Computed example of a mutant assay.
Amino acid sequence: MVRTARKDALENRARIVEVARREIAASSTAELRLNAIAKEAGVGQGTLYRHFPTREALLVEVYRQEVDDLVDLAPRLLETAEPVDALARWFDRVAQYARVKRGVLAAVEASVWRDLTTHSLGPIGDAITLLLDAGRAAGQIRDDVDAGDVIVLIGYLSRLDDDEWDQRAHRPLHIILDGLRRRGS
């Protein structure tokens, strides 16, 4: 008999992950206090530890969810926007993702980090390829760039300090977007 999680357990888990994500995005330190997360999520510490037996397990889940959300956004944007506009909107979401990634990476040990990188580079590369291919098909994106180029360029986001985030997170993404455009489009 396959046992499925109860609705309240799934809701608790989702709240824990969302609170942890907000804390990571808002913090300039690698400190993530699990008791504070449990309290803000409205669950006991036992509930938190049932879902995430270690701090690293919670961090991994926050990061995986961020990657999945980012990857899932690309095709949805292409349904409602022109390719270059979709890429611009996706880059806005990349800035949010990078802030969380920076916080997670600051808090995670190297062995877990390698697992996260394996999870993200492939799917994020696929999302970028989808957006670039659509832009090329529409005659808007240069033919000489690929997902690897874009990943290298957006990698700077995870290295920004909090005091320069507002000034430096989005403007360079728009510069990158301009560099990806085919001349004359």
Rank of each mutant, 00 (worst) to 15 (best):
D133K: 06
T129Q: 08
I154H: 03
L32A: 10
A25P: 04
P123L: 02
D115C: 04
L160K: 09
R181Y: 06
P172R: 08
R171H: 12
D115K: 12
N35L: 11
A9Q: 15
A107T: 04
Y63H: 13
V17M: 11
E61C: 05
R136Y: 06
E164D: 11
D92Q: 01
L160Q: 11
L70G: 01
G122H: 14
S27F: 04
L87Y: 00
I24R: 08
F52W: 12
A106N: 04
R93L: 01
V2S: 09
L153D: 01
D143R: 14
L180Q: 06
S185L: 13
Q45H: 15
V2T: 07
D166E: 14
D149K: 06
L73P: 00
H170T: 12
Y97N: 10
D133W: 01
D92A: 05
E61Q: 14
I141S: 02
E79I: 02
E61D: 11
A95N: 00
R50E: 14
G135D: 05
V60D: 10
A81T: 00
P172M: 10
V43L: 13
P172Y: 05
A57G: 15
L73W: 06
R171I: 07
A169F: 00
T118F: 13
P75A: 07
E56C: 07
G139D: 06
S27D: 08
V84T: 13
D68C: 09
A81Y: 02
G103A: 03
V2W: 09
I151E: 11
L34A: 15
H119L: 08
V67F: 03
F52I: 03
I175V: 15
L32Q: 05
V71Y: 02
A137T: 12
E164S: 10
R142M: 07
E23G: 12
V19M: 05
D8K: 12
G184K: 15
R136D: 04
L153M: 14
I24K: 03
V67T: 10
R159P: 07
R13Q: 14
R99C: 03
L157R: 05
L177C: 13
A25K: 03
E66S: 11
F52Q: 13
D161M: 11
L34G: 08
S111E: 15
I154G: 10
D166A: 12
Y63I: 07
R22W: 04
A14H: 10
E79C: 00
S120Q: 09
A86Q: 01
A134T: 02
H119A: 12
L70M: 06
L116H: 10
E109T: 15
L105F: 15
R64C: 06
A127G: 03
P172I: 12
I175N: 07
I141L: 10
A86K: 00
V150Y: 08
V100G: 04
A88H: 01
D69R: 04
R55Y: 14
V60M: 07
Q140F: 06
A26D: 13
R183P: 02
G184R: 15
L130K: 03
M1H: 09
L10P: 05
R136G: 05
L34C: 14
P123W: 04
N35M: 05
D149E: 08
